[in-house]
């Protein structure tokens, strides 16, 4: 398991961002993702970057943790930048190093594209960092509610999502446990030819599937035993509620959006 990967990981906390209604967070992120593509000037980018970094700081998740967690994404960002720098040839030559010309336009394009990329990843990962999976699915169920009129199985979808999210850590643990047991019986997952390594996965996958199916069956049984019959008429133990802070955040975010669009060139 890669411990430094934070995408999709929840860090419990009590910051303002943690306590916001999950619907607020999802809506803000939704519009943020759109608005990022509207930015096209130094000012609009600065506003959005400041907003994103400010929000990241407000979560009180250690910044070093976030930066380290985005490690796999850093590579993509840098790669995007370099690709633009070397492949596209637009605008004036700014300077050249060892006879290789650097173009103004491609530098700017590479820069803005990787900045966009960075902002998107940073901001969306803040959602999962500060919101428990259960809250996220509740919010999604609520936000997709209108689709119910079109006979779209919103509740079932949300249930499926929350069950799979709930069982990811369980399956990870199970996988780790089984791989340790098999390693103790002499399986080597790390070295050997490709064929050896593929066949080393079988003793891991089969027990994992067996236990996943068993778990699913037990879960279904337990749910039925407690009278689960689907979404019809089902109430929620944690009703979502917009509070004052949510309205304030919406208001602030509208200002940010207006400012971003206003500073477009």
């Amino acid at each position: 398991m890669n411990n430094s990967m934070i995408i999709g990981q929840y860090v419990p906390g009590t910051s303002l961002i943690h306590r916001l209604d999950p619907r607020t967070k999802i809506l803000v992120i939704f519009f943020f993702v759109i608005i990022v593509f509207f930015a096209n000037s130094v000012w609009s980018y600065s506003i959005l970057t400041a907003f994103a970094i400010g929000t990241a700081l407000a979560t009180r998740v250690p910044l070093s943790f976030i930066v380290k967690g985005l490690k796999p994404v850093w590579f993509l960002i840098v790669f995007t930048f370099l690709l633009h720098l070397f492949v596209s040839r637009q605008g004036d030559i700014l300077f050249s190093v060892l006879g290789f010309p650097f173009y103004e336009e491609s530098l700017i394009q590479g820069g803005t594209l990787s900045l966009r990329f960075f902002l998107l990843i940073l901001f969306t990962s803040l959602l999962t960092l500060t919101t428990s999976p259960i809250e996220i699915t509740d919010a999604i169920e609520y936000l997709l509610h209108p689709l119910k009129k079109l006979r779209f199985p919103v509740h079932e979808l949300a249930l499926m999502m929350s069950i799979s999210l709930r069982f990811i850590p369980t399956l990870m643990q199970e996988a780790e446990k089984i791989s340790k047991a098999q390693a103790s019986r002499g399986v080597d997952f790390r070295t050997g030819s490709l064929k050896d390594r593929v066949s080393a996965v079988i003793p891991l996958l089969i027990p994992l599937f067996v236990s996943a199916f068993k778990r699913a069956e037990e879960l279904a049984m337990a749910m039925e035993a407690r009278g689960y019959q689907g979404g019809e008429g089902r109430t929620k133990i944690r009703a979502l509620l917009f509070r004052k802070k949510d309205y304030i955040v919406f208001f602030l975010f509208c200002l940010i959006m207006a400012a971003t669009i206003g500073t477009r060139v």
């Binding site: 047991a181 390693a183 103790s184 399986v187 080597d188």
Partner: peptide, 30 residues
């Protein structure tokens, strides 16, 4: 690892072979 055998909690979760014989033989074979 050959000299240290570990019986984990709920070791039956590590079974995977088609027959009992093959599963028992898995360790020594490795």
């Amino acid at each position: 690892r050959e000299k240290t055998g570990i019986v984990f909690q709920y070791p039956e979760h590590q079974l995977f072979e088609e027959t009992v014989e093959k599963d028992i033989a898995f360790g020594p074979k490795n």
